[in-house]
Simulated scan of single mutants.
Amino acid sequence: MTKTLQTSAIESVQLSIQSIIGVVKNLSEKEIRWNPSAEEWSIMQIITHVAEAIPYWVREIQQIKEHPEKAWGRGLTDETRLKTVSVENVNSLQISDVLDQLASIPVYVEETLRAVSSKDLEIIAPSRNPRFDGKSVEFIVNHLIVEHVEKHEHQIQRNLSKYSQE
């Protein structure tokens, strides 16, 4: 039996989120809130971003299924995205609350992806982001959910490596 794209995506998100939570819950608050540089995010900013972004992309998949004629997506300068990772927002959050949000993501992803058919994966809706115009729901699953979480999991490891060199 071969794994479906949905099953692989669900498993990948579950493993990545579990890994992120496993690492972060054992760190000090100083390590979590430390910024490697002015251009790089702290681990707190990373996990806050993941906790906002993945549910956002899951909702976009749901919206595309219901209204494939409507534009989906956002760019790097999206106001909600930027506010989520702002120092003011991140400093107002409790680490435990963000970890709880992260812990709920795999179930949300699974519920949505289990309801996505192979035909749904082929839907191409217009995108608000020109880079993503002409991309299918499958692209959202692979790149904006699965690879997105994996990328930030690796970013946390890079931050820890840099922190240990401090």
Results as ranks from 00 to 15, higher is better:
His67Ile: 14
Ala38His: 11
Leu102His: 01
Glu60Leu: 08
Val146Cys: 06
Tyr56Thr: 12
Arg81Phe: 08
Arg81Tyr: 09
Asn89Asp: 05
Glu31Gly: 03
Gln157Val: 07
Leu113Arg: 05
Asn129Ser: 04
Ile21Gln: 02
Thr2Ser: 11
Ile105Asp: 00
Thr112Ser: 06
Ile10Asp: 00
Pro126Val: 04
Gly22Asp: 02
Glu39Ile: 13
Gln18Gly: 10
Ile17Val: 05
Tyr163Gly: 02
Ser16Ile: 05
Ser161Met: 11
Gln62Val: 09
Leu102Lys: 03
Glu79Phe: 08
Asn26Phe: 09
Arg33Ile: 10
Glu29Phe: 10
Leu160Glu: 05
Tyr56Asn: 10
Gln14Thr: 15
Ala115Asn: 15
Val24Arg: 01
Leu160Val: 03
Arg114Val: 12
Ala71Glu: 09
Ser37His: 06
Tyr56Ala: 09
Leu82Trp: 08
Arg114Glu: 15
Leu82Pro: 10
Ser127Phe: 03
Val90His: 02
His143Trp: 11
Ala71Phe: 08
Ser96Ile: 13
Ser12Gln: 12
Gln165Ser: 14
Asn159Asp: 01
Glu88Trp: 02
Glu31Trp: 02
Lys151Arg: 15
Val58Pro: 03
Val85Asp: 11
Leu76Ala: 11
Asn91Arg: 07
Val141Pro: 00
Glu138Arg: 15
Leu93Asp: 08
Trp41Thr: 02
Thr4Tyr: 00
Ser118His: 10
Ile47Lys: 06
Thr80Asn: 14
Ile95Val: 15
Ser42Ala: 07
Ala115Met: 10
Arg59His: 14
Lys30Gln: 14
Lys151His: 15
Arg131Tyr: 11
Asp78His: 02
Asn142Asp: 10
Asp100Ser: 15
Ser136His: 03
Lys162Ala: 13
Val146Asn: 03
Glu79Gly: 11
Ile156Ser: 01
Asp133Val: 05
Ala103Glu: 08
His152Cys: 04
Val58Ser: 02
Ser42Trp: 00
Ala115Gly: 12
Leu93Tyr: 08
Arg114Pro: 13
Glu69Asp: 10
Leu5Gln: 10
Pro126Glu: 06
Ser118Val: 15
Leu82Ile: 12
Glu122Val: 09
Lys30Ala: 14
Gln101Tyr: 15
Asn142Ala: 11
Ser136Asn: 00
Thr7Cys: 09
Ile145Asp: 02
Val141Asn: 00
Phe139Lys: 01
His143Leu: 07
Thr2Asn: 13
Gln155Phe: 09
Val107Ser: 14
Lys119Asp: 14
Thr4Phe: 03
Ile20Asn: 00
Asn142Leu: 12
Thr84Tyr: 06
Glu31His: 06
Lys70Gly: 04
Gln63His: 15
Arg131Ser: 12
Val107Ile: 15
Glu88Leu: 05
Ser96Thr: 15
